[in-house]
Design a protein around this nucleic acid. Structure first.
Lengths: 229, 229
DNA sequence: GAGTGGTCTAGACCACGTT
DNA sequence: ACGTGGTCTAGACCACTCT
C-alpha cells in the first residue's frame, strides 16, 4: 500500500505514456497525490521533481504541475577518456605522441578561449589506436599560464587526455560536434582516403573562468557517437 | 548559519575544485557533514545525491562517499524540434514535403527497429529551411502498424517531427551522431557541393517496446551541435 | 490573497556491502 | 556485525505567482 517515490514516478509516467494524461493536462497537486498513493507529500515531491528534471512535466508555483506539451527531449552523453572508450570495446589501446611544441597562442585560439595576448601554450598532437588501427587523432592546446607543470610533463607514455583529468580537479566545458572533410594529412594519420567525412569533437575547458585547454578530436571514418534516452 | 542543500553542494564543490579534497579522497559521512554545516542529514543527503548524479562523487553504502578519480563527464543535449531550433536563431522557418510513399519496411529498417516482416511503413522525405536557405534534410520512416493514423495525416503543412511529438505521448529513443559524405542528391537538396562532410543525426524511437519511427537528419555543411556541461 | 511547489527538520527504519 | 547511504514521515515555514 505504501508507495515509494519510484512507484509514484512510474505510475505518473504510465498515465502519461498511456495517454490518460494528455500533454498540457493538469496533474493533481502534491497533497492530493500523497493522499491518493497513501504516502507523504515529500515522497510525491521527489517523484515529481525528478520527472520535472527529466523534462516530462513542468511545474510552477501556484499554477501547479502540467504534462509538458512537447516533452523536452534531452540526451545525456558520457564523455569517456579515449582509453576507456576503446578498452570497453574489448580492443587493445595504443597511444602515440606525434608532435610537441611550445608557442604563443595563435589568435584563433585566443579568441576561442578568451586568452590574453602573449599567452604561452603547449601544442600537442597525438594518435589513439584500437587494436593497432587508427581510432582518433587528437589536436591539443594547453595553457601554460594556468598549467605551467604541463611543460615538464612527459606525454610520450601518458596521453594529455588522461594527464589532464588526473591533474585538473574539475572544470566547466563547452563541447561541439561537427563533420569535417579529411585533409590529405588527416587521411594519412587515420589511414583513410582524402575527402572522407570525419566526425569531429571540439572541447574547450575552463577552471573557474580560466581557460585550461582546447582539444579537437577527429575520429576514423564511420565513427558513431551513440546514446539512449 | 543554517545551510541550504545548495550551500552544502557549493561548498563541497569548492573543496574539490580547489584541490582540498583530491580525487579518491574520502568525504565525511552524512551525519558529520550535517553537524559541520548545522543542518539536517536530509539536507546533506540531497546535496550529495545531486553531486553523485552529476558524476562528481561516488557513493556506496558502508564504504562512504569519495571524490571520483576521473570525474564522470556527461553532457546533456536538448533535442529540439527543428522549427524551434531555427526560430531560436531568429531565422524564418520554412518546411517542405519532398516525397511520400507507403511501402513495406526494407530489411535494414526492420533490423534497426526490430520490426516484424510485412510491416507497412510511411516513408517521408522533407526539407527544413532557415531564412530560405536549406538547413536540414529529413528522411523519416513511420510504422503504420503502431500509428495507422499517420497514413491519413497531412504532412504538406506540418512536418512529421512536430506531428509526432503532438501525437505520441512519450517514448524511449536511441540517438547516434556521425559524419557522412554528401551524395550528389543530398548536395542538391542542401545546396552544397558533392563530397562535403555533413553532420548527421539518426534516431530510433519506441513506445513501450513498439517501434514508432526512424529518422535520419542531415544538416547543411558547417553545422555544429553544441552544449556546455 | 491564497494556493502551489520548494525546502528544511528530527526522527526513524531499512538495505546493502565492507569488514 | 555494523556503519553507511537510501528512503519515508509528519510537520513546518517560505517563495513565488496567478487571479
Amino acid at each position: 500500500m505504501k508507495a515509494t517515490f519510484r512507484d509514484v514516478k512510474a505510475d505518473i509516467m504510465a498515465k502519461i505514456t498511456s495517454g490518460e494524461w494528455a500533454p498540457g493536462a493538469h496533474v493533481p497537486n502534491e497533497m492530493d497525490l500523497a493522499d491518493t498513493y497513501g504516502c507523504a507529500r515529500a515522497t510525491v515531491n521527489r517523484a515529481m521533481r525528478e520527472l520535472a528534471d527529466e523534462g516530462v512535466v513542468e511545474r510552477r508555483r501556484k499554477a501547479g504541475t502540467r504534462v509538458r506539451m512537447a516533452p523536452l527531449r534531452q540526451a545525456r552523453f558520457s564523455i569517456p577518456i579515449v582509453r576507456t572508450e576503446i578498452e570497453d570495446q574489448n580492443c587493445e589501446y595504443r597511444y602515440a605522441l606525434v608532435s610537441r611544441t611550445v608557442q604563443d597562442a595563435p589568435h584563433w585560439l585566443r579568441a576561442r578561449l578568451q586568452l590574453a595576448q602573449d599567452c604561452p601554450v603547449l601544442h600537442l598532437t597525438c594518435m589513439h589506436y584500437a587494436d593497432g588501427l587508427p581510432y582518433q587523432h587528437e589536436d591539443r592546446w594547453i595553457s601554460l599560464t594556468v598549467l605551467p607543470q604541463a611543460e615538464t610533463a612527459d606525454f610520450t607514455e601518458l596521453g594529455p587526455n588522461e594527464w589532464l583529468v588526473s591533474t585538473v580537479p574539475f572544470s566547466d566545458a563547452e563541447i561541439a560536434f561537427s563533420a569535417t572533410v579529411a585533409s590529405t594529412e588527416m587521411a594519412d594519420y587515420l589511414g583513410c582516403t582524402q575527402g572522407e567525412a570525419l566526425f569531429t569533437v571540439e572541447r574547450s575547458t575552463w577552471l573557474q573562468d580560466q581557460a585550461i585547454t582546447f582539444v579537437r578530436q577527429t575520429f576514423r571514418p564511420g565513427h558513431r557517437m551513440t546514446t539512449r534516452y
